[in-house]
Computed example of a mutant assay.
Amino acid sequence: MNSSQIPHFDYIFTGTGLASLMTVYKMVLSGKFSDKSILLLDQDSKKANDRTWCFWEKEHSIWNPIISKKWDSALFANEKFQRDLDLKPYSYNKINGLDFYNFVFEGISNQTNITFLNEKVTDINELETHVFVGTEGNRFTCKYLFNSIYTKAFAENQNKYPVLQQHFVGWFVKTKEEIFNPEEVTFMDFSVEQKGNTRFMYVLPTSKTEALVEYTLFSEKLLPKEEYEKAIENYLKQLGSDDYKILEKEEGSIPMTSYPFWEKNTKRVLNIGTAGGWTKASTGYTFKNSDKKSTELVSFIQNEGFKMKDFHKKNRFWLYDLLLLDILYHHNELGSSIFSSLFRKGNPKLIFKFLDEETSLAEDFQVIMKCPKLPFLKALFRVLF
């Protein structure tokens, strides 16, 4: 095939995870890209319910039709106390992965300028006037490429920025006994044995007998699978259930790092999603950040003469995240005490606003002053010197 026969697109998205699909969907909604050819490439056909996304919000968003459950109350607990958090005016929302995929693909399926190919990307090569993309069966070129295929080596083969994982195993269970409160999500329950790490249970109840129960760690190394599952078994027993059915399972590992992925952006290639640093480094939350960033991106590429390298801007929240990760990297056992000091008396609405990076400096100070001072001062010293 000579170069003139290679299909050319205005935009190619390599990987069709959350960030890519949000961006393309918003490009369609904007009505500004109907004259642009767009190609989506992914080896995964997006036909499985492979993950659950949660996020908090005050107003309805475009994702409201696919929210499967909302909670106005959340439980925070450790081995010494528990607190019911009134989240209003926020609600904590759950979206199933398959519902999201179906919603977006339905929204873009009648767009003749958008093509989705279920193919694995094998090669990306940026040239002066275009980007070449190879898959196992085809070759394409494009003017601009948005890449969401995560390269572990970028963050892990350096030692300037700490890298932790938010790793978890979750069971969707149906219990014989009524052990769940469907009106309250268990946001973080640190009452489980910490074993020198930051470990907690996370529960999304949909009825008195059904919930997603996840054993989650913020730490550097993953555990053997049976350790996660044993912890979920023990927790269900502690809640009062020995008799339950596992309806579905999910597992994952989300990188938590302040590594500046955006420095890999070039003239024609922009990294998005986890590959572009869109995951909130200190919490691993991805949905809300991707929602904001995708909106910014769609607006950004409508500007004449935009430069891909100008898209990302570092802010003070990046430093806050870096300090927390530095503490957890050097002293992983401190996670429970840091989060507990934040939630014991902190205002939940202010904490969510802070995690959304929408607080003023004065409000930042209110949140930060709830945290233990010495570990953060030591982390600041390590980061600076």
Rank of each mutant, 00 (worst) to 15 (best):
Q158M: 05
T175G: 10
F103C: 10
E126W: 12
Q165F: 13
E126N: 02
F168T: 00
V121I: 03
T115E: 00
T112Y: 03
K152A: 09
L127G: 04
T115F: 09
L127R: 11
N110C: 11
N102F: 13
F140K: 02
E128Y: 03
E128L: 11
E119Y: 09
Y101Q: 00
A155H: 08
E106H: 15
K176S: 11
T122D: 00
I108A: 00
E177R: 01
F116K: 12
E106W: 15
N157I: 14
N125Y: 15
Y150F: 09
E126D: 00
V169W: 08
N138K: 14
N118Y: 14
E128H: 00
N147V: 15
G170S: 04
L127Q: 10
T175C: 13
T151P: 10
V169I: 15
N110F: 12
C142F: 15
N113E: 01
E119F: 08
K143F: 15
V173Y: 05
G170R: 04
N138Y: 15
N138E: 14
Y150L: 15
Q111D: 09
N147G: 02
T135L: 05
C142D: 00
H167F: 15
E156D: 07
L145M: 01
N138W: 15
S109W: 08
Q158G: 06
T141S: 13
E156W: 06
V121R: 08
T151S: 10
E119P: 10
T129D: 11
G137N: 13
N147H: 09
V169N: 04
A153Y: 10
S148R: 08
T175R: 08
T135Q: 07
T151A: 12
A155Q: 02
V133E: 09
V104F: 02
V169K: 07
K152T: 11
L145K: 00
Y101R: 05
Q166I: 06
N159H: 12
N118H: 13
E136F: 12
T122P: 07
N125R: 14
C142T: 07
G107L: 06
K160C: 12
L145N: 05
L127A: 10
Y144T: 05
T141N: 02
N102H: 10
L164K: 03
Q158F: 12
K174T: 13
F168Q: 01
N113F: 14
N125V: 13
T151W: 09
F154D: 08
G170W: 04
N157P: 11
E136S: 12
L145W: 06
E178M: 10
G137E: 03
N159I: 07
R139D: 08
N157C: 07
E128C: 04
Y144I: 12
I108L: 03
N157G: 08
F103R: 08
S109Y: 03
K176G: 05
E178W: 07
K174F: 14
T115Y: 04
V121S: 07
N157V: 14
V169G: 02
W171M: 03
E178T: 01
G107Q: 01
K152P: 11
